[in-house]
Amino acid sequence: MTSLNITLLAGGVGGAKAAEGLAKSTYADGLKIIGNIGDDQAFHGLWVSPDIDTLIYTLAERIDRNQGWGLAGDQQNVLNGLKQLGVDTWMQLGDMDFATHIFRTEQRHQGIRAQKITEQIAAANGVNVPILLPTDDVVQTKLKSNGQWLSFQDYFVRLRCQANVEEICYFDYEKASATPESLAAIDSANLVLIAPSNPLLSIGAILSVGDIRRQLQALSKPIVAISPLIGNQAIKGPAVKLMQSLSYRPNVVGVATYYRELVDVLVIDSTDAHHAPEIEAMGIQVITQNIWMRDEAEKVDVMTSIVDEVLKWQLERAS
Rank of each mutant, 00 (worst) to 15 (best):
residue 105 T to R: 04
residue 106 E to K: 07
residue 110 Q to I: 01
residue 113 R to V: 04
residue 113 R to L: 14
residue 113 R to G: 00
residue 114 A to Y: 00
residue 114 A to Q: 13
residue 114 A to P: 00
residue 116 K to Y: 12
residue 117 I to S: 07
residue 118 T to R: 07
residue 118 T to F: 09
residue 119 E to Y: 06
residue 119 E to T: 14
residue 119 E to G: 09
residue 120 Q to G: 01
residue 120 Q to A: 13
residue 120 Q to E: 15
residue 121 I to Y: 01
residue 122 A to L: 08
residue 122 A to T: 05
residue 122 A to E: 06
residue 123 A to W: 08
residue 123 A to H: 11
residue 123 A to S: 12
residue 123 A to N: 10
residue 124 A to R: 12
residue 124 A to Y: 10
residue 124 A to N: 13
residue 125 N to P: 00
residue 125 N to K: 07
residue 127 V to A: 08
residue 128 N to I: 05
residue 128 N to K: 13
residue 128 N to H: 11
residue 130 P to I: 02
residue 134 P to T: 02
residue 136 D to L: 00
residue 136 D to F: 01
residue 137 D to G: 06
residue 137 D to W: 01
residue 139 V to A: 06
residue 139 V to S: 12
residue 141 T to K: 03
residue 142 K to C: 15
residue 144 K to H: 07
residue 145 S to K: 03
residue 148 Q to V: 12
residue 149 W to T: 13
residue 150 L to A: 02
residue 150 L to E: 04
residue 151 S to V: 05
residue 152 F to L: 15
residue 152 F to V: 06
residue 152 F to Q: 11
residue 153 Q to Y: 00
residue 154 D to W: 02
residue 155 Y to M: 05
residue 155 Y to N: 08
residue 156 F to M: 14
residue 157 V to L: 03
residue 157 V to A: 13
residue 158 R to N: 14
residue 159 L to H: 15
residue 160 R to N: 12
residue 160 R to Y: 01
residue 161 C to R: 13
residue 161 C to A: 14
residue 162 Q to H: 09
residue 163 A to L: 02
residue 164 N to G: 05
residue 164 N to L: 08
residue 164 N to K: 08
residue 165 V to F: 09
residue 165 V to Q: 10
residue 166 E to D: 13
residue 167 E to A: 10
residue 169 C to F: 10
residue 170 Y to N: 01
residue 171 F to G: 04
residue 171 F to E: 15
residue 172 D to K: 08
residue 173 Y to Q: 13
residue 175 K to Y: 12
residue 175 K to W: 08
residue 179 T to Y: 03
residue 179 T to A: 09
residue 180 P to R: 03
residue 181 E to Y: 08
residue 181 E to D: 10
residue 181 E to P: 00
residue 182 S to L: 12
residue 183 L to Y: 06
residue 183 L to R: 01
residue 185 A to E: 03
residue 185 A to D: 02
residue 186 I to R: 05
residue 186 I to K: 03
residue 187 D to C: 06
residue 187 D to W: 07
residue 187 D to E: 15
residue 189 A to R: 00
residue 189 A to E: 00
residue 190 N to Q: 15
residue 191 L to W: 04
residue 196 P to F: 14
residue 198 N to G: 08
residue 200 L to H: 12
residue 200 L to F: 12
residue 204 G to N: 09
residue 204 G to Q: 09
residue 206 I to M: 07
residue 207 L to R: 12
residue 209 V to G: 03
residue 212 I to F: 02
residue 213 R to N: 09
residue 213 R to H: 10
residue 214 R to K: 13
residue 217 Q to N: 08
residue 217 Q to Y: 09
residue 218 A to E: 13
residue 219 L to V: 05
residue 220 S to Y: 08
residue 220 S to W: 07
residue 221 K to L: 01
residue 222 P to I: 05
residue 222 P to W: 03
residue 224 V to P: 05
residue 225 A to W: 04
residue 225 A to N: 11
residue 225 A to G: 10
residue 226 I to A: 11
residue 231 G to R: 12
residue 233 Q to D: 11
residue 236 K to D: 10
residue 236 K to Q: 15
residue 238 P to C: 05
residue 238 P to R: 00
residue 238 P to E: 14
residue 240 V to C: 08
residue 242 L to M: 10
residue 243 M to I: 01
residue 243 M to C: 05
residue 244 Q to E: 15
residue 245 S to W: 01
residue 249 R to L: 14
